[in-house]
């Protein structure tokens, strides 16, 4: 708790200095939030180079607009919103609606960490394959909800959508993901096993 307060205090000072044109202060903000932004971008785009491009564009915009940032509000949510806008622009510009065929990650190759214990390689591959078939909007709402752990109003704030829109998109995204999993060869085989048992 004390650490959070300290972090928040440091962040406020860094933002204030950024607003005065201090690029070094902005670099510290980048050090603090950069990884999270990149991970979010990577999970949405499913492509490392596109994620890097989106993050760079987001950071440039953040630097240009930092004076409009209101002190005391959530910087991560603000950055998230810029990122979602950048990805949306990139997707309309570069036809990123569908993620590339090659997976950006290979969960099965990693060591067995605490997160992986509940996720076997087969399920992971099936989900990754299904995620690539979803639209950018659906992947965005799933990532913000299940990776960033944002509430519906927070997702609405990050995306600029209405809460009702977020709710319906989340529902459709989940349904689309389930359909995509079921339509995959592994999903069909699994369904057959469940029926026969």
């Amino acid at each position: 708790m004390a650490e959070d307060i300290l972090t928040a205090q440091i962040e406020r000072e860094a933002i204030l200095r950024c607003q005065q044109g201090d690029q070094e202060a902005f670099r510290r903000v980048l050090d603090f939030h950069g990884d999270h932004l990149y991970r979010t971008a990577l999970l949405i785009t499913r492509d490392a180079s596109r994620a890097e491009e989106a993050v760079q564009e987001t950071l440039i915009r953040a630097w240009k607009k930092i004076r409009s940032f209101k002190a005391g509000t959530n910087l991560r949510a603000w950055l998230n919103r810029l990122l979602v806008n950048c990805i949306s622009n990139l997707s309309s510009r570069k036809q990123l609606e569908r993620a590339p065929e090659e997976a950006a990650f290979s969960v099965a190759d990693t060591g067995a960490g605490p997160e992986q214990s509940a996720l076997n390689a087969e399920t992971a591959a099936m989900l990754q394959s299904a995620l690539r078939t979803l639209s950018v909007e659906h992947r965005t709402v799933l990532v913000l909800r299940f990776f960033n752990d944002l509430s519906l109003p927070e997702i609405a704030e990050s995306t600029g959508w209405r809460v009702g829109t977020v709710k319906s998109r989340l529902h459709r995204a989940t349904a689309a993901l389930r359909d995509a999993v079921a339509a995959s060869p592994a999903g069909i085989a699994r369904f057959s096993e469940e029926v026969s048992s």
Partner: peptide, 8 residues
């Protein structure tokens, strides 16, 4: 779980 594993 998948998202967190990938993000790691």
């Amino acid at each position: 779980s998948l998202f967190r594993a990938e993000a790691e």
